[in-house]
């Protein structure tokens, strides 16, 4: 793969400058400039028209930016963050945050839920009526004053969402009509899909937000 990439002029700035005498490229080159590779007189004089878009290749990014740890160094910033965290923790311990909402992933779909909601899940889903389930894939929890955003999920010991399966029924009959013109082919299929209604019982924040466990992501798991 490396060999092939080496031959393509897109990724090697030296070759690139050799083929395209683009003045903008000089800043990127590592090659020692010689007289031969100097831009032509006309381009220096600004008489040639140039594309606004930079046509030179960009180097590969070294590390994904979201994986880097950003440390806040100024004292003001640190104290502001600590104040916000302590306020949120205070609300959680007092349960004075009021109604909470959450964004969860359920059945490959994201839902914004709050207690007493009814969701309808379409398709085969094993839980039976009367079952109480815990929804674990929580992407976000919010109250009127704060929002906790997961990266991508929130810790399972931080938030506890309980739901009850209240109904399993079939949808209305949906028709699927197929026809191929001039080929004497015509079919009608009838479908009724399974639907499961669940009631959200509670959304609870169960621990402080700045608590760090020794091993994260393993709470509640059985090996």
């Amino acid at each position: 793969m490396n060999g092939i990439r080496g031959f393509t002029p897109m990724f090697i700035p030296t070759v690139n400058t050799f083929f395209r005498k683009n003045v903008n490229n000089f800043a990127n080159t590592t090659m020692v400039a010689t007289k031969r590779l100097l831009p032509t007189l006309t381009s220096i004089a600004g008489l040639r028209t140039h594309s606004v878009v930079k046509r030179t290749a960009q180097p590969f990014p070294k590390a994904a930016p979201h994986q880097q740890t950003v440390v806040d160094k100024t004292e003001e910033e640190v104290s502001a963050i600590e104040e916000v965290i302590s306020k949120v923790n205070h609300q959680i311990s007092n349960k004075s945050h009021g109604r909470l909402f959450a964004v969860i992933q359920l059945f490959n779909r994201q839902w914004k839920i709050t207690p007493e909601d009814v969701l309808v899940i379409e398709g085969y889903w094993p839980p039976n009526i009367g079952d109480t389930i815990r929804l674990e894939k929580v992407l976000l929890v919010g109250s009127s004053d704060f929002s906790l955003v997961g990266m991508p999920l929130l810790r399972p010991d931080l938030v506890n969402i309980q739901a009850t399966v209240i109904e399993k029924r079939l949808s209305h009959t949906k028709t699927n009509f197929k026809k191929i013109m001039r080929k004497q082919y015509q079919r009608i299929h009838f479908f009724r899909f399974q639907q499961t209604m669940i009631r959200i019982n509670s959304i609870e924040l169960t621990s402080r937000i700045d608590e760090k466990k020794d091993i994260e992501g393993l709470e509640g798991r059985v090996f």
Binding site: G98, R99, L100, P115, S143, S144, N201, S202
Partner: peptide, 11 residues
Amino acid sequence: VPDAVFQFPYQ
């Protein structure tokens, strides 16, 4: 009982 924010406890 703040409007829209209040959560009545049923349990």
